[in-house]
Design a protein around this nucleic acid. Structure first.
Length: 442
DNA sequence: TCTGGGGTCCTAGGACCC
DNA sequence: TCTGGGGTCCTAGGACCC
């Protein structure tokens, strides 16, 4: 891996909240939060909400009084909107460089090209070469102008240090959301690392932070200079890489080509507990449809299906039951009808009456390209009608893409869908549904 | 009353094979 | 009483990320 490469991490600020604000300017400057599926937990907070001390992932019912007292505007997750806004932001970033890794819905790593390529960018940005911070400001302004989303840019030699740069940017607003740690004396970097708790380092979660603190490693700087052998022994090679990256040694490269997923999961908590097998069957059937759709969209098929159900673990006074079944398929497939058949048969084996179920899901594993299928000895892969079935799936996908998910579905998925999740505070699908498009009166 | 969903990687231990 | 060694594959569980 080249040592001289400089990376930038572009991170959307309070992304879901920012998306809501783009289409409703009245939300600017007031406290806003967005909830997880089922309106369960707080997953995005405006700065005003963060300042009130409401943490990430807190169950909503625990901050009911805060919401009332501070008149916080609360929204259900509107993934259709966020996914579309994410796509727009990424499209803007792609105009800056083809060397981009879309890391999550609201983050992307960009690689600065060598000096020679930067000259090509001069016409676009009018910058001196290697003035990375100025480049970062250009990105920030462009994304804001073209999408309305505010982003932070962290610049450094390793991914972990770009994360650090973004954290520093949050701590010091005077930097204006762009921090360049790619050059300057090591002392300066160490000064910043000292400001960060070890738990703020990318790759150090709850458990490791506790372990490290118990051994006197309290800041990011402490971790950088910790004993490497010890870190490797206690935190596996991932910990070691984390430490090396803090020292400026790149361990994680830029993956600019999306790799197919190795596992695809679809699961939901129910809006209300479910007791009947029929309701569970409907839910499982619709999760299979979702998962199979994703599977086909990456041109894969799977040969393992896992189905699971569980009761509400938070209800201590209710009888608890959770079970899952691992099913090896006779042949890899991406056909919703086949997969549904397997899943419902599996559900029949683990379902026990008399419990109040809160969550169910399916996982597809053993994923492989649909062009390189390993044949079973007595394979029925080329049975008559297979081609029609594939065409059917393609058609279903096309219709659902055009007219919205679930427009065409298996009867097994049900019609009433009593188990559906709660989304009582949903904003309109401003950008992806003609019926809900924003109307501006002048 | 109310507690999300979807991923990744690594390791240890057991089964199995020669 | 004595009871090999080394490799591979798979799985479960634990950690992390957003």
């Amino acid at each position: 891996m080249r040592q001289d490469r400089v990376l930038a991490l572009v991170d959307c600020n309070n992304f879901y909240v920012s998306c809501e604000r783009v289409f409703d300017p009245a939300l600017a400057g007031i406290p806003v939060m967005v909830l997880s599926n089922n309106d369960g937990c707080v997953v995005a907070r405006s700065n005003e909400v963060k300042a009130l001390g409401i943490g990430m992932g807190v169950p909503v019912f625990q901050c009911d009084s805060m919401i009332k007292r501070h008149d916080i505007r609360v929204f259900s997750s509107n993934y259709a909107l966020y996914a579309d806004m994410s796509r727009r932001v990424m499209e803007v970033l792609k105009q800056f460089t083809p060397d981009i890794e879309i890391y999550s819905i609201d983050e992307a790593f960009l690689s600065f090209p060598g000096l020679r390529s930067l000259t090509g960018l001069r016409s676009l940005t009018g910058l001196r070469c290697a003035d990375y911070a100025a480049y970062g400001r250009e990105i920030r302004q462009t994304v804001m102008k073209w999408t309305g989303i505010s982003v932070s840019v962290g610049i450094a030699k390793t991914k972990t240090l770009t994360k650090v740069a973004n954290e520093i940017g949050k701590k010091y607003p005077r930097y204006g959301g762009v921090v360049d740690l790619s050059k300057g004396p090591e002392r300066r970097l160490d000064f910043y690392l000292e400001q960060l708790g070890v738990e703020d380092v990318w790759g150090v979660g709850h458990q490791y932070a506790r372990l490290l603190r118990a051994h006197g490693i309290k800041t990011a700087r402490d971790l950088k200079y910790a004993d490497m052998q010890w870190v490797r022994r206690r935190m596996t090679v991932m910990g070691e890489r984390c430490l090396l990256e803090l020292r400026g040694v790149p361990c994680f490269g830029l993956n600019s080509h999306p790799v197919p997923k190795k596992g695809i999961r679809s699961s939901r908590s129910f809006g209300e507990s479910v007791t009947t097998r029929e309701d569970l069957e409907e839910a499982i059937a619709s999760y299979v449809s979702r998962a199979a759709e994703k599977l086909r969209s990456q041109n894969s098929c799977a040969n393992i299906l896992v189905v699971y159900i569980k009761t509400n673990k938070f209800k201590r006074d209710e009888p608890q039951y959770a079970n899952s079944l691992h099913i090896k398929l006779k042949e890899p497939t991406a056909n919703t009808i086949d997969l549904t058949r397997y899943a419902l048969r599996g559900l029949g084996k683990i379902y026990k009456p008399g419990y109040r179920y809160k969550k169910a899901g399916v996982l597809l594993e053993g994923i492989q390209s649909d062009r390189l299928i390993q044949l079973h000895l007595f394979s029925s892969l080329y049975y008559e009608g297979r081609e029609q079935e594939e065409k059917l799936m393609e058609t279903v996908d096309r219709i659902n893409r055009r007219w919205g998910r679930g427009s065409v579905r298996l009867a097994a998925e049900g019609i009433r869908q009593r188990w559906k999740m709660r989304r009582s505070m949903l904003s309109p699908a401003y950008t992806s549904n003609w019926e809900e498009i924003l109307i501006i009166r002048v």
